[in-house]
């Protein structure tokens, strides 16, 4: 079974149209992965769909890196189990 990180990286690669091996824990969505700042809400909705969770919008928007997103989503999954 794929880990949260593997699933998340796959979604980011799809939406931002980039290769999986370019996405690292410390990658920042806007500065390093060239996400338009308005796209962050689409990434958030895609994560919610993939992991079947609801995320607090303000808290989710404060997440800046791939590694932090994995931590935040793992926490949401545990809380909403």
């Amino acid at each position: 079974m794929a880990t949260v990180k593997e699933q998340l990286v796959k979604i980011v690669a799809e939406i931002l149209e980039m290769k999986i091996d370019k996405i690292e824990d410390q990658s920042r969505f806007v500065e390093d992965l060239d996400a338009e700042s308005i796209q962050s809400i689409e990434l958030m909705a895609a994560f919610e769909e993939e992991f079947d969770i609801e995320m607090d919008e303000d808290e989710a928007m404060a997440v800046k890196t791939v590694g932090d997103a994995v931590t935040f989503i793992t926490q949401c999954i545990e809380e909403q189990r």
């Binding site: 939406i15 809400i41 689409e42 909705a45 895609a46 919610e48 769909e49």
Partner: peptide
């Protein structure tokens, strides 16, 4: 308008 977004994700949005 946003081709890379899947319909289920768009529904959430």
């Amino acid at each position: 308008a946003r081709a890379r977004v899947k319909e289920k994700v768009a529904l959430r949005l």
